[in-house]
Design a binder for these strands. Sequence first.
RNA 1: UGCCCGAUGGUGUAAUGGCAACACACUUGGUUUUGGUCCAAGCAUUCUAGGUUCGAGUCCUAGUCGGGCAACCA
Length: 574
Amino acid sequence: MDDTSDKKPSVNFIEEIINTDRANGKHDGRVHTRFPPEPNGYLHIGHAKSICLNFGLAEQYGGKCNLRFDDTNPAKEETEYVDSIMEDVRWLGFDWEDRLFYASDYFQQLYDWAVQLIEQGDAYVDSCSLEEIREMRGTVTKPGTPSPHRERSVAENLDLFERMKNGEFKDGAHVLRAKIDLASPNMTMRDPVMYRILNAPHHRTGDTWCIYPMYDFAHGQSDSIEGITHSICTLEFENHRPLYDWFIQKLGIFAPQQIEFARLNLTYTVTSKRKLLELVQEGHVHGWDDPRMPTICGFRRRGYTPSSIRKFSKETGVTKFNGVTDLARLENSLREELNKTAERRMAVLNPLKVVITNYPEDADEDLLEAVNNPENPDDGVRQVPFAKEIYIEQDDFMEDPPKKFFRLGPGREVRLRYAYFITCHDFVKDDDGNIVELHCTYDPATRGGDAPDGRKVKGTLHWVSAEHAVEAEVRVYDHLFTEEDPNDVPEGGDWKDNLNPESLTVLTDAKLEPSLGDAEMGKNYQFERLGYFCLDSKDSTAEAPVFNRTVSLKDSWARKQKQQQNKKQGKKKG
RNA sequence: UGCCCGAUGGUGUAAUGGCAACACACUUGGUUUUGGUCCAAGCAUUCUAGGUUCGAGUCCUAGUCGGGCAACCA
């Protein structure tokens, strides 16, 4: 075949490494990854990318992916987080089967390995204080100086380390250090701490241990024990790779390969655990699963689908370049899916009453047929009741509309979706000048939304019959921050200064078409012309439904308005 | 002023020494009973300077800029 138009599927740099390894028969071509969260917080969208990468690679190569909790610091870790992390990984659509592990499972093995290194003369007990050790480590430009305890005998080290384990010392009295190179240009190789004394109960091992291994002495060996072939982590561990390899080599155990990639950064989003915690604790959001949070549980409650997050993650790609991904890509991934799958409904968020003056007072029930999803005819149709009094969106009427406004205004005719053409001939204002009611006439000949005489209207509005409406609360969300980079603050400012005061708008007077009274929890609906919505899993009840706006529909009218506003402002400034 | 890593449209990625491609965003136009969807068009001196080569986004050297590293955190 001379068909050269077939494009090779592009592979990212990690797949390239794996392909090479498999071609060379390394590990018999086996691919085994792991997702290793520390159970000290909730998973966020950045973790989602790592989960998709690790589980995705395993799937792709017919391998396995473990879930392993990196629980080496009892001071910070809690069972509450373990449970939420498992729930989130499962929700994203991944399965670790019987491979649920904890670094704490390996504490005894790790201890034995530490003893081995002491015996080999590769580790020593240092009895200096934290401050002294820090000082003697030197700086990035100045080499460190050896601790006075660096040359202790093997016997003395063994004795001291055992007594550390036996709980004879208080926190901070001694540490176990690897004996590597105090002059190394790589700071992590300057005799890193392997074990510290922490007289604290562990969420799994209880009071069994009072010394705990550091990340560097636990992670690589945990990978090794589990037979991990490709240990994927983020860029900030690049400097740790020589140490990762050093421990494995000195111990003479199975050698996984650490590979670093760039973590996900999203516009209008913070993902630092510390900052997320601060948002929750200071009440800037209502908990970890607040739909404005970039946590996985936040996205879930907001109405995001696992598949949209997986697709986003895949399309964002894997590189070593530390960039910022546009939040619009995640929104696009969701819209693309929901456009195909979400059933359409009509709902009015900011109601404006409309009286159809020529509609009969005593009309029989007037049921109109509405398509559930024009993108998927199999979803069928439903009936929507029409009546003399209806609600439309306040935004859909202007007393003095500009030329390109296609909606309702005095003397204008529009279509009510699936219903009738109506013409506005009067409106009522309250004492404050707000428009509170419209008087319109309808054309009975246009029932269903088409004019037999062929006349056209520019605008089509959604509507809800007043007497049939289901009342609901609707929560409309916007970016949590006003700046693309929330950390971009003027001198002396704080990142929280960039919090968007309008990130949550609660609409308490929404009117929904009757069928939404039976809305299913966990199902996404498109409210026509508005966006995608779902029932709130926490606050919604049968008597008082609460909907979250997951994401808006694209709105080229709103964009046009914004443009014009900006133009006006520009002229004023100029 | 040490070491490590990186640099391709506004953004994220592709091109594996041979015509810089895709997606998102943005702009313009078309279709439309959702100002949605869909369709079409527009949008780049591949950070700089040298070098290797018939040929460099890709390889080499130097520079510039950006990120990471001096927790008994992970």
